[in-house]
């Protein structure tokens, strides 16, 4: 890190930094200054501009892209690199195109969604999220299927980042034959807290053949916080896969109604460790009545008491170790 090369680079960066920051301050830049830069200074300037791209927005970002594009066309170069035979080059190019946000970026990133390298595909999905263009939503959903499918959470994160997803499109996704598409759409409905879709999600919780979809539906209902879904969530606690029951327990805690407390108490006292642990935290989340029950269990002793104490302690601010 402190070798001669690093020192040379640091020197070059220190020299070009005022030029770059001046541009961000609105200084008009004399093209002759850029033309006179040595190749190493030019590289340092480009590297600094690239490093700053993810952190600035609006006109500042445009200025940086202009600076990069004006000197040999960094965007065009990245577009070429996105078709390189080396995955690391495609990965870097995709990241840059997403940050630069040029007009062509969406097309280049959509192409990278089908790359044979998974890291490039994931990065392209994240890049599409950062671009924020709703036109990427359908292709992102489609990328859940096919020979090189993207993971559910990668797609959900990307679409969530876009922020403006039509609920109608998501509700349509709930009826898809694809488990992954149903999982992503139910996940997003929860994150967007789309109450209009609560009945559809309830239907998935009760009848979907996939445990993953049902578990995500339970989580979604917890995020929506609709009290009328308490009954169906309580029904999930009786039997079924642990993954579903743990999510239903969490959801009941989030909805925070006193009527869930007896069932959560019973699980804390008699359930398997993972469920009991979730029940303790859910009791804490339900509010005053849940805390009262937790405190009682903590005082009574036994194995459940430890979990109750842990849950109560998690509500306390953590002391800092100096």
């Amino acid at each position: 890190m402190n070798g001669p090369r690093a020192r040379t680079r640091a020197r070059a960066e220190a020299e070009v930094r005022p030029i770059l920051f001046g541009v961000l301050d609105g200084d008009a830049i004399d093209p002759r200054i850029l033309d006179r830069l040595t190749p190493s200074r030019r590289r340092a300037l480009d590297a600094l501009a690239r490093d700053l791209l993810p952190n600035v927005r609006g006109p500042d970002k445009e200025m940086l892209v202009g600076l990069l594009g004006g000197a040999g066309g960094a965007v065009e170069s990245a577009r070429r690199d996105s078709r390189s035979s080396r995955a690391s080059v495609r990965l870097r190019a995709g990241g840059f195109l997403a940050e630069a946000g040029s007009d062509s970026a969406i097309h280049d990133l959509l192409a990278l969604l089908h790359d044979h390298n998974p890291q490039v595909r994931w990065s392209a999905a994240r890049g599409l999220g950062r671009l924020g263009d709703p036109a990427a939503i359908s292709p992102l959903l489609a990328s859940l299927e096919g020979a090189r499918p993207l993971p559910v959470d990668v797609v959900a994160d990307a679409i969530f980042e876009i922020r403006t997803c039509p609920v109608s499109l998501l509700r349509q996704g709930l009826r898809s034959r694809s488990v992954a598409t149903r999982a992503v759409t139910v996940e997003l409905l929860g994150r967007f807290q789309s109450l209009a879709a609560a009945d559809d999600v309830l239907g998935l919780l009760q009848h979907d053949p996939s445990v993953e979809v049902r578990a995500r539906a339970a989580r979604c209902l917890g995020r929506m916080g609709t009290p009328r879904t308490i009954g169906p969530l309580l029904a999930c606690l009786d039997d079924g896969p642990v993954a579903l029951r743990v999510q239903a327990i969490w959801a009941l805690g989030e909805i925070g109604a006193d009527e869930s407390v007896p069932a959560l108490r019973a699980i804390l006292l008699d359930g398997a460790h993972r469920m009991a642990e979730a029940a303790a935290l859910a009791l804490l989340a339900t509010g005053a009545f849940g805390v009262q029950v937790l405190t009682q269990i903590a005082c009574d002793g036994g194995s459940s008491a430890d979990l109750a104490r842990d849950a109560l302690a998690s509500a306390e601010p953590e002391p800092h170790l100096n």
């Binding site: 930094r17 920051f21 961000l24 301050d25 600094l48 490093d51 700053l52 952190n55």
Partner: peptide
Amino acid sequence: DDDALRELILWKLTKG
């Protein structure tokens, strides 16, 4: 920890 961003902020604050 981002050197470029830290330097930009320091520059801006100094100018301010």
